[in-house]
Simulated scan of single mutants.
Amino acid sequence: MGLHEFAWGGIYIGPLFIYALLALGLTLVLRLLLQTTPFGRWIWHEALFDCALFVLILCGITWALSGTP
């Protein structure tokens, strides 16, 4: 995929925006899975955990799709 802009209807969209939307969806799915398992009760500060999980997933997506080794 690479780190280049996408043109959609004459509007340029940066790749980080698309990666962030993908990371947000994955974060929501992982949080729902964690809430249904017993591991969800071990989370101390839910907002901090959600933010950290989002950042980790966003970094992983950006690294995996950037095309650099």
Rank of each mutant, 00 (worst) to 15 (best):
G2M: 07
L3S: 10
H4I: 14
H4E: 14
H4D: 14
H4A: 15
E5R: 03
F6R: 05
F6N: 00
G9V: 07
G9L: 06
I11Y: 12
I11W: 11
Y12V: 12
Y12N: 15
Y12E: 14
I13R: 11
I13P: 02
G14N: 15
P15H: 05
P15W: 02
L16A: 13
L16K: 08
L16I: 14
F17P: 03
F17Q: 07
F17Y: 15
I18V: 12
I18Y: 08
I18A: 10
I18M: 14
Y19F: 02
L21E: 11
L22Q: 02
L24E: 13
L24N: 08
G25N: 01
G25Q: 02
G25E: 00
G25R: 01
L26S: 04
L26F: 11
L26E: 01
L26I: 13
T27N: 06
T27S: 09
L28T: 11
V29L: 04
V29D: 09
L30Y: 07
L32S: 15
L33W: 11
Q35G: 10
Q35Y: 15
Q35V: 12
Q35W: 15
T36A: 14
T37I: 12
T37G: 05
T37W: 04
P38N: 10
P38H: 14
P38A: 13
F39P: 00
R41L: 12
R41E: 13
R41A: 12
R41T: 13
W44Y: 08
H45Y: 10
H45W: 10
E46Q: 09
E46V: 02
E46L: 09
A47S: 12
A47Q: 14
F49E: 04
D50I: 07
C51Q: 15
L53N: 02
L53F: 03
L53I: 06
L53H: 04
L53W: 00
F54T: 11
F54L: 15
L56S: 13
L56W: 06
L56T: 10
I57V: 11
I57H: 00
L58R: 00
L58G: 00
C59G: 10
C59M: 09
G60E: 06
G60V: 08
I61E: 00
A64F: 07
L65N: 07
L65I: 01
S66P: 01
S66W: 03
G67R: 05
T68L: 06
T68R: 05
T68V: 06
P69V: 10
P69G: 07
